[in-house]
Amino acid sequence: MSMKNITSSSDFILLGLLINSQAPGVVFALIFAIFVVAITTNMVMIVLIQIDSHLHTPMYFLLSQLSIMDTLFICTTVPKLLIGMVSKEKSISFVACGIQIFFYVTMIGSEFFLLGLMAYDRYVAVCNPLRYPILMSRKVCLLLAAGTWFGGSLEGFLLTPITMNVPYCGSRNINHFFCEIPAVLKLACADTSLYETLMYICCVLMLLIPISIISASYSLILLTIHRMRSAEGRKKAFTTCSSHLTVVSIFYGAAIYTYMLPQSFHTPEKDKVVSAFYTIVTPMLNPLIYSLRNKDVTGAFKKIFARCSSAQKVTNSDG
């Protein structure tokens, strides 16, 4: 039997997030709670933006895309992690590992581009408000959003086949809680330096493009805010931009550590903590950051809640 057939028919073993945890029940409950909150808050954001006409703007359309990405992102890694924590089944098939790699790489790449696009949206809103309806029309938004999904999936289609075609003939134990590319490549029995260099260049490019857009957009935004005479205008501009900058700092900081820092900075324990942060915690934080600091979103939620309460009272009185 060829090496390729041996590889493709063998399962990997995911060692998990905390191998020697003293309180696995507490860790499971915490991760499960974060998962439920992340799914719930992102779905609420998607529904609110869809049904409230006041939120039918380019900014909230892009926020709905972010919520969709975060929902798919956390569903790619956490269910398998939770199953592994409550059962002795730690294995993941070769095909399932490849699928997991494709989806998490696609979501990361798509979110990179989307965050850059959101910075551009804020630049147009603050610096060119009169041209905003034209520059960020519905058609333009749909094309730009489609471009973010295409860019992310392109990275997934590029990196996944290369990763899965590397020969794995040694240990099958992945010291991680999901099939993250750097952790999987450590099991390769061939020289992967060329591929790692290619992946590094690809990730740098994927980061540089949106980071350049974000840096240029916020530099121009700060100049515009500095020239504003209205204190209320300055406050509104800072409020709309600060939430996005918070999300950008969290997400890009974790990505830069994982994919751009030299191997001397990495240990399996650090890698898993950072990965847990951007794959589990960040999808929960994003909708909370945008909703808790956004009067439009909280106002829409209160209106929907009031409507549901009124409908419930009517139903009870009729009964």
Rank of each mutant, 00 (worst) to 15 (best):
T77A: 02
D296L: 06
V105I: 14
T148L: 02
S2G: 06
E111S: 05
R234L: 15
Y168N: 04
S21V: 02
K236Q: 14
L55K: 01
P268R: 07
N128T: 05
L15P: 03
D52Q: 11
Q22N: 09
S8T: 11
L185H: 07
F28S: 03
I214V: 14
L205T: 10
Q312P: 10
I19H: 11
F32K: 08
A216Y: 15
L154S: 08
R172S: 03
F265N: 09
Y278C: 05
T192C: 05
K236C: 00
I101N: 00
I256F: 06
V314E: 15
Y259L: 03
L82N: 03
V27E: 08
H176K: 07
S217P: 09
T315M: 14
A306N: 14
V86S: 12
T298M: 12
T41W: 05
M107W: 13
F238C: 07
M118L: 14
L285D: 01
F112I: 12
I49A: 02
A237N: 14
M43T: 04
L142R: 12
L198P: 00
L142F: 07
R122D: 01
V314D: 12
I250E: 10
L82E: 07
G98F: 01
L82K: 02
P79C: 11
S317T: 14
K80V: 10
F150W: 09
F32A: 13
K295T: 15
K80H: 05
L154G: 06
T76P: 03
R229N: 15
I19G: 00
N20V: 04
S10P: 06
T267N: 13
S275R: 01
Q65D: 12
K235R: 15
F94L: 14
I250N: 06
S230T: 15
G170D: 09
I19A: 03
V95S: 12
R293S: 01
S264K: 10
D271V: 04
S310Q: 13
G84R: 08
M69V: 14
C241H: 01
I31G: 01
I134D: 07
A146Y: 07
S21W: 03
I68Y: 05
C241V: 02
T197S: 10
F238L: 03
Q50K: 05
R138S: 08
R293Y: 06
Y132T: 05
G253Y: 01
H176T: 07
R131E: 13
F61W: 06
A276W: 00
K303A: 10
F103A: 04
P58H: 10
L82S: 10
L81R: 03
M1D: 15
